[in-house]
Design a protein around this nucleic acid. Structure first.
Lengths: 231, 231
DNA sequence: AAGAAACGTTGTCCTGGCTCAAACTCTGAA
DNA sequence: TTCAGAGTTTGAGCCAGGACAACGTTTCTT
């Protein structure tokens, strides 16, 4: 139906083992959509009616506390499935997903999930592998939040983003989507003020370069040091 | 082979839909084991060779940081599967599981996992539902650690244990397994000193009664208040 | 072009809770 | 019954980082 290229899926883990015809089938069932920065793909608490694959861009998964604080639960990088709550027994999304920058997304109705699992060899296994990785990441963040000081947590958050979506540029590694001090504070459980001070200090030390909503890490190795040991 | 009663499994979600013969089969493949307090069922980093079902008791899942801090990632209540890392694509356990009190456990070799999924209708679905719940809980803890003050976090931790394994007694709800101030501090990212002070204060206010390694919450409702709002 | 909104920086103050220290109380082992 | 180890309590001091405040800068809107 739609004119998507098979190569879009053939490199992505849950679809990697499928042949061209199968991928064609899956693409024909998908609804592609483009989202602008800050636009929500789905909201926390809404009925989980679709699951998605992120083709391009970065998605921010957000939770809001009763007290009104927002915290960023995780970032989704291109090539990842998301909104797969229904596959884990939820009938409502447990968090809000918004586009961190411009995004290209494929969506399928949840009723196709069992079909995919049944029909496509390895699909379930590969997907649950992704879930496993996400659990790992969440575990790490819990340990981090419980044991590390703010400076280390911010360093970890930057490194995590570099690993997931960083792009090599001439003077370092760039975070490829718009990000504010406030965003980083929402990932690390601190305030935008503290983040601002840290980034300023690091910029002075030549660890990174930052402009409004934009960060390039020039010395990732130093950042790794900061993320583990103090000072 | 072993003389376990079918009723042990028939009430547990992933097995609920199975008939007696199927449950018998599964039981015959299982290795039952008893663990004493503080005994490890498996260690972080070890090859994930088996998955388990907790029949009785409580399991503590622990991670150790490079810095030597321990933090309690979650508690497993009776009736839950655990050590299912291999089903999520890990070939090594991401955390250590130790018996919080005396425990009765069934274990199966991982090679049976695909068999179970294939052979027993609903097994996979139900299991991933459990995974979904665990992800939810982890999400909540991340938000909690990122936004709440120590007092609220400790209150949340107590409530979580009450919900999972609390037992009604005449004067309140009891935490059914031995737990120290240090344990609670490892769940909440604080120090045993602070936990001690909080519990003392709460005991003075009649919210709970505590003895060495033992807590009974007499006013859970008040604890809920403490877990959301300050003071 | 002007105003508003979003984003970022920096300063000052103040407190929650961590650190260090010491003592007390159980429990179990020998 | 004594001792060692594990668990708990309490005190005193200190500082990382949150709260509050004000201002600078860039971007968007009209």
């Amino acid at each position: 139906m739609n004119q998507l290229d098979e190569s879009l899926l053939s490199a992505i883990p849950p679809f990697r083992r499928l042949d061209r015809a199968q991928i064609r089938e899956i693409l024909d069932l998908a609804t592609p959509a483009r989202f602008d920065e800050r636009q929500a793909i789905f909201e926390e608490g809404a009925e989980a009616s679709r699951f998605y694959l992120l083709l391009d861009g970065v998605i921010r998964v957000i939770r809001t506390t009763p007290g009104g604080d927002q915290i960023i639960v995780l970032h989704i990088a291109a090539g990842q499935l998301f909104g797969i709550a229904p596959a884990l027994g939820h009938d409502t999304y447990p968090a809000t997903a918004t586009a961190a920058g411009e995004c290209l997304v494929l969506g399928w109705p949840v009723r196709l999930w069992p079909t995919f699992v049944e029909k496509y060899q390895g699909f379930a296994t590969e997907t649950y592998k992704v879930v496993g990785e996400r659990i790992d990441e969440m575990n790490n963040r819990i340990v981090e939040l419980a044991t590390q000081a703010v400076e280390q947590r911010v360093a970890c958050a930057l490194l995590r983003m570099l690993n997931q979506t960083g792009k090599k540029v001439d003077n370092g590694i760039e975070i490829t989507f718009p990000i504010t001090r406030a965003n980083i504070s929402e990932m690390t459980g601190t305030t935008l003020h503290t983040v601002s001070r840290l980034l300023s200090a690091w910029e002075k030390q030549g660890i990174l370069e930052s402009a409004r909503r934009h960060i390039v890490v020039t010395d990732p190795h130093r950042l790794v040091q900061l993320s583990t040991s103090a000072a």
